[in-house]
Design a protein around this nucleic acid. Structure first.
Lengths: 231, 231
DNA sequence: CGTGAGGTTGATCGCTTTCAACGGAGGTGG
DNA sequence: CCACCTCCGTTGAAAGCGATCAACCTCACG
């Protein structure tokens, strides 16, 4: 099922803002291997650790009382998970694909950051980047049509896989339609229908349900902003 | 129109995580007074300054190409605006009420943070708190019904004005229905209708359009989570 | 008293949801 | 090896919620 996982793993090299773990005693770091669908932690768990994704894709989400779910982010290699203010996690987290993940005690990370301003700065840079990403997602959740949401989502993934000048890219989606729907604030049926519309419009192709081919990235970009005219 | 502005201003004292500006030369700080509706900065402006709200309320928002707007946050005294990664602002910002705002050169702030880890830590704490607030807002934008959104929004404001044990509170809304709509991902008409529903349900009262009385905060909390049963 | 901005309410439309049926891929056991 | 089952995805039909269009109201201000 994850035949193209190596593609995902290669992304690690693209992230240049890796944390300088050399500042932290090796005995305090643990690299762990996870199977698909294993949880990292749950909402309200004690926030004892911060996790750095080395390989694989992780899904962070929050559950409302009545079963509704909002996916907060899909985390790729280089991303940091669980850097929270306060002593408890405010969301759950589980891996979508087989993954390798580094685990650092949060107290150790913050203590080291206090002694080494450079690490503190990296953490601050990471946090402000996260804020910018979330602001992008706000406009998407609050103000876009279903097709625009899905087009924007696919563009975001495509940009992780794209080389300069490419106009066509192929990649695997590590998440299900439900995951995507809960990320975009839609139902899985609407995600499926939107994908079909994008296919009909010639922007993408779907040889298998989890394989996406970007056929015309410019059209996809158009559809991500003003789909009303197109349908 | 802003007769109760003093109520808002008092909130400054409630925020305990103020930045230790004493570390920054007084000559580099400027406290400025703004009139209602004045902009602080615009999207793509050079991010030369970071702003701390001292008095008043500020609205941060992003405009899509076709005029759609997403309000990212309403900033109250104690909040920090414009702490971005990169050299440009990614959103616009304007004051909603007469305001007093401290302006610090971003380079100076970051340089000082490098030398004084304590300041860096405060900034990191601020950023992670922001992340948590935005995660809350995600679930609201993506997964709540209109009435739930408005109820949640009013609860959030009410919590800024509430004293312990209060079951009824009165406060002024510094923003218009359009601002609220653009914050919640709704139209102004839907916001208005939802307010009326909350009034009919006995959760709130609206003596004037910008004056909100929380009549039954527990009912309001119920309506913020599972309104479907109530209507 | 006229004017304009902001707010409320009504009627209708349309997009997304909901409910439901079907199909394909992968895994298991006879 | 094949029947069967389950999970995931797609598609169709109908219903519902919020958007849109429009009228009216209130209040502040000149």
């Amino acid at each position: 099922m994850y035949a193209h996982q190596s593609e995902v793993i290669q992304m690690a090299e693209l992230h240049s803002n890796n944390i300088p773990w050399t500042e932290i005693p090796a005995t305090k770091q643990q690299v762990q291997v996870y199977e698909a669908h294993e949880p990292l932690f749950c909402e309200w768990d004690d926030a004892g650790f911060v996790y750095e994704v080395l390989e694989g894709v992780v899904c962070c989400y929050r559950l409302c009382g009545d079963g509704r779910r909002q996916v907060l982010s899909f985390c790729y290699p280089g991303d940091l998970i669980g850097l929270v203010q306060g002593d408890f996690h405010r969301y759950s987290s589980e891996v979508l694909t087989p993954a390798r993940i580094r685990r650092i005690p949060r107290s150790m990370l913050l203590k080291t950051a206090k002694e080494r301003p450079e690490l503190g700065q990296k953490l601050l840079r990471f946090a402000t980047s996260e804020l910018a990403v979330m602001q992008d997602h706000f406009a998407l959740l609050g103000r876009k049509m279903a097709v625009e949401k899905v087009a924007s989502f696919l563009l975001g993934i495509a940009n992780r896989h794209i080389s300069e000048g490419d106009t066509t890219v192929t990649f695997q989606l590590p998440m299900t339609r439900v995951d995507i729907a809960d990320y975009l604030g839609l139902t899985l049926e609407t995600v499926s229908r939107s994908m079909t519309k994008l296919k009909i419009a010639g922007a993408i192709d779907l040889p298998q349900s989890s394989t996406v081919v970007i056929r015309d990235i410019f059209r996809l970009e158009d559809l991500a902003e003003a789909s009303d005219k197109a349908f």
